[in-house]
Design a protein around this nucleic acid. Sequence first.
DNA 1: AGCAAGTCTGAAACTTGTTCTAGATTAGCG
DNA 2: CGCTAATCTAGAACAAGTTTCAGACTTGCT
Lengths: 213, 213
Amino acid sequence: MDHGSWIGDSMTADARPAAPPLTERQEARRRRILHASAQLASRGGFEAVQMREVAEAAGVALGTLYRYFPSKIHLLVATMQDQLQHMHTTLRKRPPAGEDAAQRVAETLMRAFRALQREPHLADAMVRALTFADRSVSPEVDTVSRLTTAIILDAMGLEHPTPEQLSAVRVIEHTWHSALITWLSGRASIAQVKIDIETVCRLIDLTAEPGRG
Amino acid sequence: MDHGSWIGDSMTADARPAAPPLTERQEARRRRILHASAQLASRGGFEAVQMREVAEAAGVALGTLYRYFPSKIHLLVATMQDQLQHMHTTLRKRPPAGEDAAQRVAETLMRAFRALQREPHLADAMVRALTFADRSVSPEVDTVSRLTTAIILDAMGLEHPTPEQLSAVRVIEHTWHSALITWLSGRASIAQVKIDIETVCRLIDLTAEPGRG
DNA sequence: AGCAAGTCTGAAACTTGTTCTAGATTAGCG
DNA sequence: CGCTAATCTAGAACAAGTTTCAGACTTGCT
């Protein structure tokens, strides 16, 4: 239940001193662990990411794995953070081309969705971990959430969103996560996820500032 | 991984013969189990619902518990089904009084939210189980989803919703579940959940049939 | 180089969800 | 009532996440 401080623990709030800078070998270990995690997840989803196997595949002792990531959930959320970062840079290269903000956001999310479809097991592991995470993972989940928000705001082309627009973005994120869950558990089709995304994106029109981008 | 057929397994599809009718003692056992589950969940949330403890509190052997509910997730989803049923009947007694459909839905969901706030640990256990459930629990999760849909449609006062309206309802459900998650994990305040609910309910206005209730 | 503090390893132990087994109990039926 | 199949019980066993520990290795510092 209680995890002490761990390697890479930067603690956003000022509760603890800033992150200890990682040595090169530590950085390499961290990367190997995340890579192993993503690899195993790609094979068999959440259940296939077994801590002993991750440790072995990363060439690291079990105790060390737990020092870097204090739980399986932490590990998978960090994996998602990693993947999202990739996606964000990829998306920045080819921004969506839609007419209005709603279209661009929908297009962006559908692009992300297609990427997830290529690795459905990985998506399963990451999304399940994200929604299952309890309070002890809040800072990490929050980072993921901020990244997602940034991606959506990018697509909207907004620098200084109004509170109303931020609400719409939050609702879009809610829908995005939950729609993914229903798809992953086989309760909704790809087409249905598409419809839901397009539906929720219409909220953006409701909050558009007249005479602005 | 593979659970055989179990007590109370009614199997909506015609893959298996219909539900074996439960004897009185079996019905009583099932109730005791669900009661124990809710009780333990109310104390300490998801983690506090431990299968051995549930079995003991229900006065039933561990193997029997698993015969009635093939996994902890199944048990908690069934618990949620149970609670939702109560809520539905309660809500029917005092229908929401708002002017338009969006207001009534928002009011209904906020009422449900307040009920959950009274037992936050129970809410934690049920909602986490619901979103963590994998394909093997799809039928049960689907039942919960249909119940939720029914509650929302009740609030809207619709008998024959259009496909567009059903999309809106699905998006509202997505927001509802995901907003609850963020609240439970301490990443969103009660006020923020309220705003998100009200925001997403504005979608209803977008899909209102002109000249109909 | 040589020491102190911190880190990593390998292996065992512990926890809780899940499965299995042998025998006792119960339900349905002639 | 007495039989048979299904169900229930107690308890062991197994699986995977998590914790712990003694000893080896690194790092930073002088």
